[in-house]
């Protein structure tokens, strides 16, 4: 009876997607090499943040180890390419490895919640970082590994713009797949897990499996991002996969708005691109950023995408307060 109609929200989302795509495709015309590189980085950070948003925002499982999965994807590709394996075989290997390790990391989440989980995942990240740094025979340690750009159907992706288009395509495909997943019954099960796991279990929802899957799929997204990150930078060392990058990935999700589909797009833009525009602020930039995060949590913990709703709610509250005040004034004889 009810055919899917184009609601106003759907039209707005569609228009936004079209405008964003057009803007992203046109952007290189106005940017130098470094600008294109930054946008490529933004696209890959967004992919990793989309994964974390699935784990944290939709399924409600705190993970502070997302950069470790980025590292697992990146090093899998780098190590395999060094051994002469094609990038296009290294990619699925890295993603599968990230998925498997993410599945394993989900097990503590079955036992503990909240703060324990936050620190368990943070600790996991510290461990991965130590392994990458210390096992020089495999990872090159602090000396890192050089990674060449791959070829696609015989076409070299050495040019920055070509690789930028690859990064955009990776973002588009990941976003589409995650969107499909979120509107499948799995997405509903994830929301149940977040809202009320005990009730979910009493309704036959296998909280255990879905928790593990939420971690593993989130990790796989970071694995994808990491696999494409290594050839983008041409070189990888342990530094982008430590605790601080993990915190930044978390902040991307939180700043944009956890559990909101476009949150990671906005959050990744703020964390990746803003420091470059605010170069004048120099060393003070991170101080300002830190204070901004505190202020955002104080005023709108739902993230920036929740601000319009918050403002509307505040306005409505003020209007009704004024309305009732006016009503009382009018009622006076």
């Amino acid at each position: 009876m009810t055919l899917p109609t184009l609601s106003r929200a759907n039209v707005a989302a569609l228009a936004f997607i079209v405008a964003m795509t057009a803007g992203l495709l046109a952007a290189p015309l106005f940017l130098k090499t470094y600008g294109v590189y930054l946008l490529s980085l933004w696209a890959l950070n967004t992919v990793a943040a989309i994964g974390l948003n699935l784990t944290l925002g939709y399924a409600g499982q705190i993970s502070l180890g997302q950069a470790a999965f980025l590292g697992i994807g990146a090093y899998a590709v780098a190590i395999l390419m060094k051994a002469g394996v094609s990038f296009w075989l290294g990619l699925p290997a890295g993603v599968l490895l990230a998925f498997a390790v993410g599945l394993a990391l989900g097990f503590p989440a079955l036992r503990v919640q909240h703060h324990y989980l936050a620190f368990a995942t943070l600790g996991f990240n510290a461990l991965v970082f130590l392994v990458i740094r210390n096992e020089e025979w495999l990872t090159g340690g602090n000396f890192g590994i050089r990674v060449a750009r791959p070829e696609l159907l015989g076409h070299s992706l050495r040019s920055g713009i070509d690789y930028y288009h690859v990064c955009l395509a990776v973002l588009a495909v990941t976003a589409l797949l995650v969107w499909l997943l979120l509107r499948s019954p799995w997405g509903r099960a994830f929301a149940c897990l977040r809202d009320n796991p005990i009730r979910a279990e009493s309704l036959g929802i296998d909280v255990r499996s879905y928790t593990l899957l939420a971690f593993a799929i989130g990790a796989a997204c970071a694995g994808v991002a990491g696999a494409f990150l290594a050839p983008l930078v041409n070189f990888i060392d342990p530094s982008p996969f430590g605790l601080v990058p993990s915190i930044y990935l978390l902040l991307m999700v939180i700043i944009g708005g956890p559990g909101r589909f476009f949150g990671p797009f906005l959050g990744a833009a703020i964390v990746t691109l803003l420091p470059e525009w605010l170069r004048v602020a120099d060393v003070w930039y991170l101080v300002i950023f830190g204070i901004f995060v505190v202020a955002l949590m104080a005023f709108c913990p739902g993230g920036l995408l929740a601000v319009p709703e918050k403002v509307a709610a505040m306005r409505a509250a003020r209007r009704s307060a004024r309305g009732s005040a006016a009503g009382q004034a009018g009622a006076r004889p």
């Binding site: 978390l250 939180i254 991170l286 101080v287 950023f289 995060v293 955002l296």
Partner: peptide
């Protein structure tokens, strides 16, 4: 719990980099 924890992360960034 979560927004509070995130706020202390923001504080960490501000203090350390300050």
């Amino acid at each position: 719990v979560l927004p509070l924890a995130i706020a202390t992360i923001g504080l960490t960034l501000a203090l350390k980099n300050g």
